[in-house]
């Protein structure tokens, strides 16, 4: 296990093909190997691994989307005068999607001339590619919108549900879209018939959702333990109970991280601890047992062999499992 202290809040952790990368509130990006990129003028609000697997894409409150690699950085797109609040990228299609205000923008990692801008009625809070990278879901007030990534002129399919939706994800089989909501619950739609799924009971807002175990489980933060929803069969979690692991009355799970093809789950807590667990097995393995500032960034490598975390006070760590 390696730990580092930074003089700024860490807003995101990401693994690319080489190692862990931290994005900071002072606009800089720190690579695990010590490389440094300070391309943003302001805070980094969102980050995701580049579709090529080399380096990280960051969106900032300076309205710039920047690709940082070890030793170089370049601006891929700008959103004039607006914050870039959310970003996602698809290794499958090579596309990158980000939101600024009410606009969803799609660019192509391999074609600098390609850009699509899609307008929403309300501010976009989250962006997620479907597993094949051809469609994009956005979360916004009143529901989620589904867009085809490459088509210039289109009307989105709008999945309606009253309330403010603050984040969005696709199930790994592409059958469900799940959003987190302002009022401490999840909402889901089965895409083939737009059947609604309501997943509630959280004491706090859900900040992170992550699939694992071949898409059979959705791990979520926002409770005293990690809440796991079963996604088995055509009905997903409909009519099934959630399970909770790692329940600890004294803390809240702030973030979760996992990889869809693997069975391991990492959780970062509001009291600064980080644990790893196999939901099929027993017990928690604490990667960071000492308490501290709330965990603000958590990531698991694609092969589920490494976990990176960081807290609000600038402490960051990387562990090999």
């Amino acid at each position: 296990m390696k730990t580092t202290a930074f003089d700024a809040q860490i807003t995101a952790a990401v693994f690319d093909n080489t190692g862990a990368i931290f994005a900071l509130g002072d606009g800089s990006v720190r690579f695990e190997g010590g490389e440094f990129s300070a391309a943003h003028d302001g805070a980094i609000l969102c980050a995701v691994a580049h579709p090529s697997g080399d380096g990280v894409l960051t969106g900032g409150d300076d309205g710039r989307l920047i690709w940082h690699r070890r030793g170089e950085a370049g601006v891929l797109a700008t959103a004039k005068g607006q914050w870039i609040d959310a970003v996602d990228a698809s290794a499958e299609s090579g596309l990158i999607a980000f939101s600024a205000g009410k606009t969803l923008t799609v660019i192509d990692a391999k074609d600098a001339g390609f850009r699509r801008d899609f307008q929403h009625e309300r501010t976009v809070s989250g962006v997620a590619f479907e597993p094949k990278g051809r469609r994009i879901a956005t979360s916004t007030y009143g529901g989620a919108a589904l867009w085809f990534a490459r088509i210039a002129q289109q009307k989105p399919t709008f999945l309606k549900w009253a309330g403010s939706h603050t984040a969005v994800t696709f199930s790994p089989d592409g059958a469900f879209v799940i959003t987190a909501m302002q009022d401490a619950q999840l909402h889901g739609w089965r895409l083939k018939d737009q059947k609604n799924l309501r997943m509630g009971g959280y004491p706090s807002k859900v900040r992170a959702m992550s699939f694992l175990s071949n898409g059979q489980l959705l791990a979520t933060s926002g409770a005293s333990g990690v809440v796991l929803w079963p996604f088995i069969g055509a009905n997903g979690p409909m009519g099934r109970e959630a399970t909770e692991i790692g329940f600890d009355e004294g803390s809240l799970v702030a973030l979760v991280a996992s990889q869809p093809k693997h069975g391991l789950l990492a959780a970062g807590l509001s009291d600064g601890r980080v644990w790893l667990a196999d939901p099929a097995g027993q017990g928690l393995n604490f990667l960071k047992a000492e308490r501290g500032a709330p965990i603000t960034a958590l990531a698991m490598s694609a092969d589920a062999t490494r976990v990176a975390w960081a807290d609000e006070d600038g402490q960051a760590g990387v562990a090999t499992i």
Partner: peptide, 10 residues
């Protein structure tokens, strides 16, 4: 939430 990301330790 975005502004708070500029917060530095302490």
């Amino acid at each position: 939430a975005g502004l708070m990301k500029r917060q530095r330790p302490g």
